[in-house]
């Protein structure tokens, strides 16, 4: 989106939501708002039904685990020690707008946030996915089950403290004539080390 359209959207959002917006930021042609978890349902309702906004489609919902996020940028602004965030990507087909909405979830041990399934029905499976992979509980969701992992899976695989190789491996046991689980036997290894460089690395002509 062009900057003038983004500015107009930002002004419309300010008008419609007022102090329910905890933060508005603009980068790379995308507008991001941050919302406090308590205001989430009210904001979502306004975004969906306000005639100047009419974000009738929820494109995506994703959970993020910020526990190993070391740098300080707008992606983590306003985090204040909270571990999990839920990021909503909204689309307005009517006005051709896109918007990103971020909610930092209170309570790192039992993260819980309101479900918006009554406002955007498409969020149903996305919330189940975030619950499955990150353990974020969406209160008010009608059918919060695991979705992508195996039946009877233990843990939340996309959390940063969950190893890439997992905890259990399965194989067929010919004696018991069934599939059995056992602790993983492979060593997790990192081929390329994780390196963070200075801010402007690679951006200028080298």
């Amino acid at each position: 989106m062009t900057n003038s359209r983004l500015d107009k959207l930002a002004a419309d959002l300010q008008q419609a939501l007022g102090d329910q917006l905890a933060d508005v930021s603009q980068a790379l042609g995308e507008l991001t708002i941050r919302v406090r978890p308590d205001d989430l349902l009210g904001v979502a309702q306004t975004l969906q039904s306000h005639p100047d906004l009419s974000f009738e489609t929820l494109i995506d919902l994703c959970g993020v685990d910020f526990s190993e996020y070391t740098t300080d940028t707008y992606a983590g602004r306003g985090r204040e020690g909270r571990r999990f965030a839920v990021v909503y990507h909204l689309l307005s087909v009517t006005h051709n707008y896109r918007l990103r909405m971020r909610v930092f979830v209170e309570d790192n041990e039992l993260p819980m946030v309101d479900s918006v399934v009554n406002i955007w029905p498409s969020v149903n499976w996305f919330e189940r996915e975030a619950f499955d992979l990150y353990g974020i509980v969406f209160s008010g969701h009608p059918d919060l089950r695991r979705i992508l992992t195996d039946y009877g899976f233990i843990g939340n695989p996309f959390r940063k403290d969950f190893p890439l190789s997992g905890h259990v491996e399965m194989s067929y046991d010919p004696d018991q004539k069934r599939v059995v689980y056992q602790p993983v036997t492979i060593e997790p290894r990192e081929i390329t080390p994780y390196v963070i460089r200075e801010e402007q690395y690679g951006r200028d002509e080298g």
Partner: peptide, 11 residues
């Protein structure tokens, strides 16, 4: 090492 991508987020 691979390329380094500036901080931020993009969809």
């Amino acid at each position: 090492e691979g390329m380094h991508v500036p901080r931020g987020e993009a969809y």
